[in-house]
Simulated assay, not measured.
Amino acid sequence: MTRAWMLPILLVVCGSLVAGTRVADGSLGAAVALLLVFILLAGLYSPLVFPRSIGAEEARRRSAVDGRPVVYWRAGCAYCMRLRFRLGLDARRLHWVDIWRDPAGAAAVRAANDGDETVPTVVVAGRPHVNPSPEWVRGQLPR
């Protein structure tokens, strides 16, 4: 869990330092604006923008029951964020597994990608697809 929050924490710390230098220079407005930008970036790179993650075993079980795809992801991954944001509200209809929080999820991704932890990996009906387009993933959702 700590690894997923390292980048957001680093962004907030750096933003605070940059804002502090602006305050020291007498630019309070610029300091507030810069701090808000860094906080926004920290939020975007945090696990908070993704639907709640579940374990890999639970995701496989649920997928077998309801036919929804399983998405293996990790915080800070630009491709995962692209998939998440382009799916919009449909993202909540998928089963999300954070590979940094779930060792079984990381093992499943490595097994599907010749030992690499390449994300997002979307599993549909037991078949993995690496970095698919959001439109394709939306098309895999059961009606």
Rank of each mutant, 00 (worst) to 15 (best):
R84L: 13
R84H: 13
V124I: 12
A125P: 04
C77V: 10
A112I: 04
G139F: 05
W73V: 10
A106T: 06
W96E: 02
Y72E: 04
G105S: 06
R101I: 10
Y72A: 06
R92F: 14
Y79Q: 13
V122P: 01
W100G: 14
V130H: 00
R127G: 00
T121N: 00
S133E: 08
L87D: 06
L89A: 15
V70T: 11
G115Q: 02
C77G: 09
R110P: 00
D66L: 09
P103S: 11
A91F: 07
L83N: 03
R127S: 04
G88A: 12
A107V: 00
F85V: 14
Q140V: 11
D116V: 08
C80I: 07
P103I: 10
D116Q: 13
R93N: 10
A78E: 15
G76E: 09
R82F: 15
T121Y: 01
R92C: 12
S133Y: 03
D90A: 15
W100F: 13
D116F: 12
G126D: 03
P132G: 04
R68N: 08
G67I: 10
A91I: 08
R92H: 14
L94A: 05
V123P: 00
V119G: 01
D114C: 00
P69E: 09
R84A: 12
H95P: 07
A106D: 13
A107Q: 02
G88K: 06
P69G: 11
D98S: 07
D66K: 06
V137C: 08
A107K: 00
V137P: 02
E135K: 09
T118R: 14
V122F: 03
T121C: 08
R101A: 14
V70H: 02
C77K: 05
G76T: 06
A112T: 05
A107S: 05
V122E: 01
P134I: 05
I99N: 02
W136G: 05
D90W: 11
G76D: 08
D66P: 07
A106Y: 03
R92Y: 14
V97I: 08
E135T: 12
N113R: 12
D114H: 00
P134S: 11
R127L: 01
A108G: 07
G139I: 01
P128R: 08
P134L: 04
H129I: 10
I99S: 03
R82P: 07
R92P: 04
G115T: 01
R68Q: 12
V97P: 02
V109T: 04
P132N: 08
R86G: 09
A107I: 00
V70W: 02
Q140G: 09
V124H: 12
R101G: 14
W96L: 05
V71T: 11
A107M: 00
F85K: 04
A111P: 02
W136D: 13
R74M: 15
E135S: 12
A106S: 13
R127Y: 00
